[in-house]
Design a binder for these strands. Structure first.
Length: 422
DNA sequence: AAAACACCCAACCGCTACGAA
DNA sequence: TTTCGTAGCGGTTGGGTGTTT
């Protein structure tokens, strides 16, 4: 991995982040917001460039991140979205709350592409490989077939999944109508140019589709009362996301990528973590949507004047300490079944879940944990505890603050992990 | 046991877009 | 209009880890 030119000049640190650095960045941003990223490292006392800090925050420290393996639903959605959006990972990520574009990109490159190829589907065009090899991919027929082939991909994936987990997969009707997308494509006459950053994959998609997608996503992500696009116009033409949104309870106005962005003054961000907002980004309450492999990183609620407590699930801490990494599987398969993962879930995730189930019990939990000698290994899983600990503040307010969304956490996790209190 | 290989993923690079001066 | 600084995006890389030989 290289180093930013600015890092060379200033002899800034590069590479993996240490817990101390994470703590500093976390503390700074939760307290003051990021403001201008280039000034963050200086203000936070970090020897990193602002870009690096930004990346670290977005991809790892952000409190609304969901970690753990991708569910089948999520994978299917990514495939469907990729068929429509191409490699526009950030736009795909918008439709998967709690997932970062980097995470999705990695999943695609390491896993989904392979899966599709194994099934004879070209991951770039989403058409059968035989068809791609024959070179017929430039006409409208090809586009139509592309859409239907997405359904085929999903059918294959679903079939495989149902074999693995008989009965566990909740059949979802194909989200892309074989007619809807071509209809929209034909109906649009826009000549809007494609973003110059478009890659080769993206270039496979017409500018019409770009326009349509922009229109759709704008409408979808904004208030439904907006006048620029009637939602009803879109429902018939492009059921994918609306359908998914209704199925998976995705919020249309809780785009996590907008959180913390452009914060102009300290604590503005805190308002973003009010209970009202939080509940919207939380996952659907059906445990079937998120299988057991998912470990949520619950939302944080901060009081207006300081960070008193928060919940964090840091399940990817292998790089913090070599000794920790030995026990930590970073692979995407079955990490929840490892003792480490269980321990994490119980020691952290479930502490929080306990709060969901019973505030009182959770308070006791947290108070007990405060009294304990805080161990390094625990910090690995919950950097915010560092804040709590170092500030000698009671985490109690957290238990109260998180109340509003705790039922959702319980629903999401309760079925996942035995609700045992350690 | 150890070397070789494969895979995963966090982090970096280089680029463009955009707004302010 | 131009320049500069910043944010954000997608592609790529390299180190760590797991698996195979």
């Amino acid at each position: 991995m290289g180093r930013h030119s600015c890092c060379y000049k200033q002899k800034l640190r590069k590479g993996l982040w240490s817990p101390e650095e994470d703590e500093k960045l976390l503390r700074h941003i939760t307290k003051y917001g990021h403001g201008c990223w280039s000034s963050v490292p200086k203000q936070a006392g970090l020897h990193r460039c602002g870009k690096s800090c930004r990346l670290r925050w977005i991809n790892y420290l952000r409190p609304d991140l969901k970690r753990g393996t991708f569910s089948q639903e999520e994978e299917n959605l990514i495939i469907e979205l990729h068929a429509v959006l191409g490699n526009r990972w950030s736009q795909i990520a918008v439709q998967l709350p709690g997932r970062t574009d980097n995470e999705i990109k990695n999943l695609w490159n390491s896993c989904l592409k392979k899966k599709l190829r194994q099934r004879g589907i070209d991951p770039v065009t989403h058409k059968p490989l035989t068809e791609v090899e024959n070179g017929e991919d430039k006409d409208a027929v090809g586009r139509n077939q592309k859409v239907t082939s997405v359904s085929n991909e999903l059918d294959l994936l679903k079939a495989e999944n149902s074999i693995k987990e008989t009965g566990s997969y909740e059949q979802r009707p194909s989200l892309i109508s074989s007619q809807a997308y071509p209809l929209e494509m034909e109906g649009s006459s826009s000549s809007r140019t494609i973003n110059s950053r478009s890659n080769s994959n993206l270039m496979n998609h017409s500018s019409n589709k770009d326009l349509f997608l922009d229109r759709f996503f704008t409408s979808h992500n904004e208030s439904s009362t907006t006048n620029c696009q009637q939602p009803s116009d879109l429902v018939g033409h492009f059921p994918l996301l609306l359908n998914y949104a209704s199925t998976a309870s995705l919020s249309t106005n809780s785009n996590p990528s907008h959180w913390f962005s452009q914060m102009e003054k300290p604590f503005d961000m805190n308002s973003e973590f009010t209970s009202n907002t939080k509940s919207e980004i939380l996952p659907p309450t059906t445990s079937s949507f998120f299988p057991s492999s998912i470990c949520y990183k619950p939302s944080i609620t901060f009081p207006s004047d300081d960070i008193t407590a928060a919940s964090f699930t840091m399940d990817e801490s292998r790089y913090w300490e070599a000794s920790a990494s030995n026990n930590n599987s970073s692979s995407s398969n079955g990490s929840n079944s490892s003792p480490i993962m269980e321990n994490r879930m119980l020691s952290w995730g479930l502490t929080d879940c306990s709060a969901c189930a019973s505030d009182k019990e959770a308070q006791i939990n947290l108070m007990e944990s405060q009294q304990e000698e805080v161990k390094w290994a625990e910090y690995l899983h919950n950097p915010l505890l560092m804040l709590v600990s170092t500030q000698n503040q009671s985490p109690q307010p957290f238990c109260n603050e998180i109340k509003s969304d705790t039922h959702l956490l319980t629903d999401a996790l309760g079925a996942i992990v035995p609700h045992n209190k350690q």
